[in-house]
């Protein structure tokens, strides 16, 4: 059975100026240990979709089933506990700016009620894994974008998630840093067999780490399949456009696409 199952998911935002259908009849499933990409242009509904998985955003219809559990049927308390299983990293890192790097990594363990001394020891090992142990005493403002994302990854690892949601996690980073963060994510996926959902507008990101990909356009999945297949023979205009954008960027930047 699929590990994450999204079943006829709908999300409509209501405001004074009228309703906006952000997600329309979205269905897909993700297997355990898989890296699943969701790609689309900005405004396609990617961020809303990923927020519906850990219920930061409440779906208007459909079901979200994680490891056999219906997320929408959970109580507030149960949801808090399940959320510890679903980590999330963000485009703008969202670190606690008034805390040191080490205390940021300790934060999820504070929530889980781990003793402070024990948390600090563990936090250091997580920082070692992302290669930032020497920055433990620094504050986020003293770090580069790539380093901040590494801290965010160490922080999310500290909550020992089984699922990791990456919301445009590399979009604020330069191509080289993007590479190193993607490598780190891939390592983590292999080492801990964490299932990942990667939201991005960059085809390159999908190409590099995703096993399968879904193309989102105007709140609908227009195409999905194995990354290789979608790349080699895109069936829809939306997918083709995203692939060509990547090629165009490569030509403009003189890179080879790696």
């Amino acid at each position: 059975m699929a590990f994450i199952e999204i079943d006829h998911l709908e999300k409509t935002f209501t405001s004074k100026s009228g309703d906006t259908e952000a997600l329309k009849d979205i269905s897909f499933s993700i297997d355990k240990g898989e890296i699943f990409g969701v790609i689309g242009l900005s405004g396609a509904g990617k961020s809303t979709l990923v927020r519906c998985i850990n219920l930061l955003e409440k779906p208007s219809g459909g079901r979200v089933i994680i490891d056999g559990k219906d997320m929408l049927a959970l109580s507030e308390r149960e949801l808090k506990i399940v959320r510890r299983d679903i980590g999330m990293i963000f485009q703008h890192f969202n670190l606690l700016m008034q805390r040191t790097v080490l205390d940021n990594v300790c934060f999820p363990m504070e929530i889980a009620g781990v003793k402070k001394k024990e948390a600090r020891v563990k936090a250091l090992t997580y920082l070692e894994q992302v290669g930032l142990a020497e920055k433990a005493a620094a504050y986020p403002a003293q770090l580069s974008g790539g380093q901040k994302q590494r801290v965010a990854i160490a922080r999310v690892l500290a909550s020992k998630p089984r699922i990791l949601l990456c919301d445009e996690a590399t979009s604020a980073l330069d191509p080289q840093t993007t590479q190193s963060i993607l490598q780190l994510l891939k390592q983590i996926n292999e080492k801990y067999s964490i299932t990942m959902v990667v939201i991005t507008h960059e085809m390159r990101v999908v190409e590099q780490i995703c096993d399968r990909v879904a193309v989102l356009e105007y709140g609908k999945i227009v195409e999905s399949g194995r990354t290789k297949d979608v790349f080699e023979s895109p069936k829809t205009e939306a997918a083709r456009r995203l692939i060509y954008t990547r090629d165009y960027n490569d030509i403009m930047s003189g890179g080879s696409g790696i």
Partner: peptide, 11 residues
């Protein structure tokens, strides 16, 4: 965003 991150960690 920081509040959202805390929520995603189960705070």
């Amino acid at each position: 965003g920081v509040i959202e991150a805390a929520q995603s960690l189960g705070a």
